[in-house]
Amino acid sequence: MPGISAVEAVAAALLVGSLAFILAAVVGILRLPDFYTRLHAVGKCDTAGLALATLALALLSGDLVLALKLAAVWAILAVANPTGTHALARAAGRAGVPVWTADGAARRKSRRDGGPSR
C-alpha cells in the first residue's frame, strides 16, 4: 500500500483486533444473562483489547522510552484489570447476587407466560 509503512500496517491490524475484543465485551454485557457472566466477558475481553491497543500505540510511538512507558501501562493493566474483576465477582458473591441457571430462567419464563404460579 502506498504511504503506509509495515509498522503502521501491523499497528493498524493490532488496533482492529483490540476493537474486536472490546466489541465482544460490549456484546457480552448486552447479551449475557447475569452479573457474573457479564463480568466474565468484560474482564477478559477488556484486558486483551487494551493490551493489543497499548502494543499498537507502542509500535506507533517510534520512541523507546515512550514504548517502555506504554509497556508499563500494559503491565499494570494486566495485573489490575483481572484483580478488579475478581474483587467485583467476590463482592457480588458475598452480597448474594443471584447466579443465572437454566432452571431458574425456565421457571421465570413460565411464570411470565401465565403458567402455574409458584
Binding site: P82, A87, R90
Partner: peptide
Amino acid sequence: RVDSLLLDTAARVLAPF
C-alpha cells in the same frame, strides 16, 4: 482484611509501584 489471595498478591505487586 480481605482474605483473598488474589487481591493480596495484586496489592503486593502494585502498591510499591
